[in-house]
Write a protein that binds this DNA or RNA. Structure first.
Length: 566
DNA sequence: TATCCGACGCATGGTTTATT
DNA sequence: AATAAACCATGCGTCGGATA
């Protein structure tokens, strides 16, 4: 890729301030592969193929009214789209029966129409792709749209160029961001929204997505130029170094850290405002430096001196975003604000990989705040990938109609009577509840408090803290400080990230044989149904080449947890 | 005083039933 | 058969009265 020169042609300066993001990374990893999703459940193949092969009466034209494949036009858009979208023409189609002309190609949406996902720069476009998980074709192929030629307003020129990555110097707010081109617009980013099915893409919310700068191969596709000589990092440089350091924000009792440890990482640093959470965390992860501190202060001067951990995981409070949040809470404002500490933390600590977890209510119920989160992360130069994950696919015991998923019986039956916080914490119901079959039923959400669905299969009592630990895939002998009440323990456990979600992640050379998750009683097993998109942090050489070897890229994994269905 | 526990909250999405 | 209405269970929750 040619180095960026700086002629003053396109000024992408934002109406808002552009944060200063200077990154110097010695190691980097890219979790995204260009053909991001190539599998499809065969049982739900699309009935009609979107953008399928062109058959009569449709034919393709080389030219039409001064337009040809490879040119861009501005649209007078209809339907859900905003006027002013730019359209990159891939094919010009004509219906020989009625002479209707249709353009097939890619929609480029203005940054200010991206719902807050991108800084609203005036001449910035974003490649906008909807894709279905039931379509096996590459997202660029299936993500094309057909628009009538009548929607065209005028031709436009677009420069497809690389986005600044966290390894680039973005400059400060007073410096315009310039692109080496005399085009009217620049297109540097792509948003890919994945839906469960092609048919659902217009009616349902996206199930997972990706917001990132264009790959070199994609730029080559749009510019029609061959992919230039690429600097391919040797495989060893693509890995994180042998020992992977892990930092944990809003760490709670340490569920996510437990998972990171299982995956081979070294838990180095954590913070939480809650004293009991910090004490519990330190008991179980004594090697870590634990800060009992407010997140905003951690991101400012009171946190550790700035350095670059390999992994940073944030579990911001979920209460304001949860579907179960149906009335105003005492700490709503502080809990909402906690989400927006993300950019400050990324800006200060510059982790090589950032991970974040939230309730599915954030993208589902609060899309504006979710877009703002994507903006914060991508604004710091990270590529963002997010997904609504169903935790039962990761080995968390929850409702499923088909075995073998992990059931309540699987989770709690091996806890010995001598386990701490178990038999001694039992209080029997005066009146038993309705019993249920623990080998066929999955647990309901392990909530931090409240709810009335917390009782054992025999209906005679509530689960003990040890059982709740097991239901959350934490070790049943996880340590707690002395004199914690049952309710406090269950609140800490309910807030935890189930560590088993890390079971498919391998980090660093040292983690190669540590990936299997240790379940109750030392039983070693992997989830019954491993997720189809297991995140392998060590990419192979083929993927490396396909990625174009853009140096200095980093990757963000945002896992949105849709869990606890009963 | 602190903890516990049942009632309450309601948009959402999936399923079933009613109507066209 | 297609569409609309009714129904129903859900959630890293919140509240306030009862109980220890």
């Amino acid at each position: 890729m040619a180095p960026i020169k700086m002629p003053e042609v396109i000024d992408l300066t934002s109406e808002t301030t552009q944060s200063d993001a200077v990154r110097l990374l010695s190691h980097w990893i890219d979790l995204t592969v260009p053909e991001y999703r190539a599998w499809a459940p065969p049982e739900c193949a699309p009935v009609t193929l979107r953008n399928g092969p062109i058959f009569p009466p449709w034919i393709t034209l080389d030219k039409y009214a001064g337009l040809s494949p490879g040119t861009c036009v501005e649209l007078h858009s209809t339907g859900p789209h905003r006027n002013g979208d730019i359209f990159y023409i891939v094919h010009i189609l004509q219906n020989t029966a009625d002479q209707l002309i249709v353009l097939r190609g890619h929609r480029l949406v203005r940054a200010r129409h991206m719902g807050g996902m991108l800084q609203p720069r005036r001449k910035e476009l974003c490649l906008f792709v909807n894709a279905g998980l039931d379509d096996t074709r590459p997202f660029l192929t299936q993500g094309m749209e057909d628009v009538p030629a009548a929607e065209v307003i005028m031709p436009r020129t677009v420069a497809f160029v690389p986005a600044p990555s966290s390894g680039w110097q973005l400059g400060n707010a007073t410096q315009p961001i310039l692109v080496d081109s005399d085009a009217e617009f620049s297109c540097r980013y792509v948003l890919v929204s994945w839906h469960k099915s092609t048919a659902a893409r217009t009616t349902k919310r996206a199930y997972e997505g990706e917001l990132r700068g264009l790959y070199a191969s994609e730029i080559a596709f749009f510019t029609g130029e061959p992919v230039g000589p690429q600097r391919v990092c040797p495989m060893s440089a693509r890995r994180l170094p042998g020992e992977v350091t892990y930092w944990d924000g809003f760490c709670g009792l340490g569920g996510a850290a437990q998972g990171a440890k299982m995956a081979g990482a070294r838990v180095e640093c954590a913070f939480d405002i809650d004293e009991k959470a910090c004490t519990t965390f330190k008991l179980n992860h004594p090697e870590a430096e634990v800060y009992r501190i407010d997140a905003h202060h951690f991101a400012q001067d009171d946190g550790p001196a700035s350095c670059s951990p390999d992994l940073f995981h944030l579990s911001c409070p979920c209460q304001p975003w949860s579907p179960a949040h149906t009335r105003v809470g005492k700490n709503d404002e502080a809990n909402e604000a906690a989400l927006f500490v993300t950019s400050a933390i990324l800006s200060k600590y510059k982790p090589k990989i950032h991970m974040q977890e939230q309730t599915f209510g954030l993208p589902g119920w609060h899309p504006t705040q979710f877009s703002a989160l994507l903006n914060m992360i991508s604004g710091e130069g990270y590529k963002v990938r997010w997904k609504v994950a169903d935790l039962k696919d990761y080995g968390v015991p929850q409702k499923a109609h088909l075995l073998p998923y992990r059931t309540i019986h699987d989770a709690v039956s091996r806890i010995p009577d001598t386990a701490p916080n178990h038999r001694s914490r039992i209080t029997w119901f005066p009146r038993p509840r309705e019993p249920y079959n623990a080998t066929r039923t999955m647990a309901s959400c392990v909530l931090a408090s409240g709810g009335c669905r917390d009782h054992t299969p025999d209906g005679r009592r509530r689960f003990t803290p040890a059982e709740n630990l097991a239901l959350q895939t934490l070790p049943w002998d996880y340590k707690f400080p002395a004199r914690l009440t049952t309710g406090t323990m269950k609140k800490l456990i309910g807030n935890a990230v189930p560590p088993v979600v890390w079971s498919t992640v391998r980090v660093g050379d040292g983690g190669a044989d540590k990936g299997d998750v240790v379940m109750d009683e030392g039983e070693r097993r992997t989830p019954a149904t491993p997720p189809k998109d297991a995140v392998d942090l060590t990419l192979d050489e083929e993927e490396d080449r396909a990625l174009g070897g853009d140096e200095g890229e980093v990757e963000v994994e945002v896992i949105d947890i849709m869990d606890m269905d009963d």
